[in-house]
Simulated assay, not measured.
Amino acid sequence: MAHGKVMRIQAASEPGEVATTENAGSHAATCALPYVSFNQLRSFHAVAVGGSVTAAAALLHVSQPTVTIQLRQLESHYGVELVRRTPKGLRLSPLGESLFAITERLFALHAEAIELLNSSATTLRGELRIGGVAPHFVMRLLAAFTSEFPSVSVSLWLDNSTAVIRELVEQRIDVGVVGQAALDSRLLALPYSKQNVVLFCHDGHPWAARDGVRLADLAEEPLVMREHGSMSRAVLEEALREQGIAPQVKLEVGREGVREAVVAGLGVGITTEVEYVPDPRTRMLPIVDADVFTEAFAVCLRSRRTVSTVRAFMRTAEALFERSA
């Protein structure tokens, strides 16, 4: 902050009078801002968000010793314990939890201040880190966004919904496209699209000539499932549970391995219509007696929803949903 004379507007004693520190006298001293190291608060906040000094250093793009020193200086200056160092890692003390609630608001306002200072720019610029559950879900939205905002640099990281939400909460990404609306008050979620869950089998399977399957057919059928955290798996398991059917999971494998496992005859696979890739070795099987579907949502942290790039991405998702509704 620049040194020199600080001008503060006060209530005027007479109509038309503007009071400043020039005529406020001793009142200026009582209004002086208390000092606290912003960098120390920032290091504390990053540790609280990331859960470790390593994660905090990565968030701040500084060294781990820098974070450790600033955190210790903050605690030492006020003679308090903000972070407890346990064998299982760092945990916030009760005072640390209270301070974290304040720094969440502080750094949200800090982001708003930066946005205000940048608001005069006519072209949206910057960087946007996107997390998504599958290329099929995110690419249409990504294409629409980059077409409208070509000066924004984007990066895309893919995983399941649970992992994307975790990275979002820890602020390693800015926005996400996920297969669930997380019940987390810290997140803002907007519906983006809806996809039917389908099954598929190899071309030599007895079901290959069918037009579809019923949920009851799955009672004894070996299934190839995605990992836990996959929303297509979660909604199918819920539909089966409602009918008292326990799925027979023969193999649990990541997204890329499901198709090859089905082709190898390990079981019937689960995917969504938009993710199913036509292959002469497999047959897609709709579920004919239940409405089993996943929904895709664009999500961001509520505390960062006013950041210009985040706000633009969420508005793009909302517009796409409205056009497809």
Rank of each mutant, 00 (worst) to 15 (best):
T271R: 02
T282C: 15
I270N: 03
V274M: 11
M314F: 07
S303M: 05
V307L: 00
D279T: 11
A298G: 08
A290F: 10
R305P: 02
V310A: 04
E275I: 09
T309H: 05
V268A: 00
L266N: 10
D279K: 10
G265H: 10
L301R: 14
T316S: 08
V288A: 05
V299C: 05
S303A: 12
T294A: 06
G267I: 00
D289A: 12
L301E: 08
D279G: 04
F293W: 14
L301G: 08
V274P: 01
A290Q: 11
R302Q: 13
A296H: 14
E318A: 06
G269Q: 02
Y276Q: 09
V274E: 06
V268R: 00
T306Q: 06
G267E: 00
S303R: 14
A290N: 08
A290E: 09
L301N: 12
A264H: 02
T272Q: 02
S308L: 09
F313G: 02
I270F: 09
T294R: 13
I287D: 10
V310E: 05
L285S: 15
S303H: 06
A298P: 07
P278H: 06
L266G: 05
M284F: 14
V263K: 10
A264R: 10
F313A: 01
F293E: 07
T282P: 14
T309I: 02
R305G: 00
M284I: 15
E275S: 12
T309W: 04
R302N: 13
R304M: 08
T294V: 15
T316L: 05
M314V: 03
F293D: 05
R305D: 01
T272C: 04
E295Q: 13
V288Q: 03
P278I: 07
M314R: 03
A312W: 13
L285Q: 15
R302H: 11
M314A: 02
M314H: 03
V310L: 07
V299Q: 04
R281C: 03
L301M: 14
F297Y: 09
R281N: 07
L285H: 15
R281F: 04
P280N: 03
C300G: 01
R315I: 04
R315M: 06
F293A: 14
P280T: 02
V307A: 00
F293N: 12
A290G: 09
S303C: 03
G269N: 01
L285M: 15
C300Y: 02
V277S: 00
A312L: 09
R311F: 13
Y276I: 13
R311P: 12
G269Y: 07
A317I: 01
T272W: 09
P280L: 03
